[in-house]
Design a protein around this nucleic acid. Sequence first.
DNA 1: CGGCAGCTTGACTACGGTCAATGACCGTGG
DNA 2: CCACGGTCATTGACCGTAGTCAAGCTGCCG
Lengths: 244, 244
Amino acid sequence: MTAVTDCLDCPLRCRRLFVPMTEDELAFQRRFKAGERLVPAGGDILVQGQKSSALYTLLSGMAVRSVTLESGRRQVISFVFPGDLIGLQSGIMGEARHTVTAVTDTVLCLFPRDRVWKLFRNQPARAYDLTWIAAVEEHFLGETVATLGQRDATQRIAWALVRVWRRLAAIGMDQDGTVPFPFRQQDLSDAVGLSVVHTNRVLSSLRGAGLARIAGRRLEMLDHRGLSKLALMDMEKEDVRPIL
Amino acid sequence: MTAVTDCLDCPLRCRRLFVPMTEDELAFQRRFKAGERLVPAGGDILVQGQKSSALYTLLSGMAVRSVTLESGRRQVISFVFPGDLIGLQSGIMGEARHTVTAVTDTVLCLFPRDRVWKLFRNQPARAYDLTWIAAVEEHFLGETVATLGQRDATQRIAWALVRVWRRLAAIGMDQDGTVPFPFRQQDLSDAVGLSVVHTNRVLSSLRGAGLARIAGRRLEMLDHRGLSKLALMDMEKEDVRPIL
DNA sequence: CGGCAGCTTGACTACGGTCAATGACCGTGG
DNA sequence: CCACGGTCATTGACCGTAGTCAAGCTGCCG
């Protein structure tokens, strides 16, 4: 039985990916957070089509956001990492449009819906941040659309690996050039719109080319610059964003 | 020389797609709007990588939001229709991440960036609406990702046509089962990640099947239910959203 | 030790891309 | 008024990337 993490002790907010909070915001944040929710690996955090009012921030662990078409095919919309907001759409528009599934054991900070309104009413700066977060999310989805529409198989995989690596490095989860990678190849292929078989072939070719390697639930980045170039990604300055 | 449209006379806000505004909100809105901007067909409303502070709502005309990769390939992220918000990302995150190009002559309502902060400060309900709009946008991008990742060529085109048709019908732009469709086949193919050639073939097969037809810069929907089914789209209840 | 989930490899196929040529339409200028 | 040039739509022939099917392989957990 672990105690609930106080926002004061939040291991995420001081990471370079996130905009620092003021004293005042931090105080509000502590009252805003209503508790935590634990979802074990394989469990659903949010289910497509189901009413759900809460907002979450992923405190630890990883997840995938996905939709399933009537054809039965699954698309992974995005990977979800510590610090990511979950449930904005369902929280605002009423019901969840996609499923969020825990890939590892996860801990979520819980923000009840009715307090969100209070945030807009009393904390305009935080409300602005929330919109900012939504804009960032939108930006990444735009990137994803461009990837699925215009990049070939190798570029897609390279792109996805670089994205994951940069995101995790930005919250300090890299060690010796590796980051945790708990996703199955099936998850990766569902994310980039390729078959598992082809995904596997591409991965082994990237390994062969000495660019990156997945092994033991970890992703090893052997040539960040090379892989980024292959993926047609610019080495954009890492931008920061708020965290809720 | 046409006069600027007063928000009171806005031809969009009363359409069934949009949440009605209160008297109060309308009053604020009139002060919020700083003027209009006209962009002729083919002109750029926003340019990828360029600083831009303003927020716009497309008042009339149509546009495409797109990004161009280093390979030179272009991805159309979304079509932009009357009532859509433009520039949230650039307005909040600083610089535009994608280009918005006018496809017809367009009129834009202009909201200066510095007034956005005033909105968060003084109009929490409108700020909430802005976030809502961002969430809706995010939802649609998620759909797009799923389409590019999991639907085949025919389903993609069908999906795109139905989306356009529903969107325009929801603001009353349908006449005799047709809606304006000023986009080139090149735009459509860049939107769904297919070559123009294949797009053309699919379109003619849809025409042959009596499902839909594009002619004379108009899209004729011959079998909405059939095309939706083909596109694996549910006949979801039309949901409403706020307009800025 | 057995069973299961996930990874890997091979053989064959097909969907959609590319290249190329022709056609339809439209605005402009001689 | 018609010839010209440009843009966009259409069609044909060929090809290559990635999907499918199917069989082994590996590693983990009971």
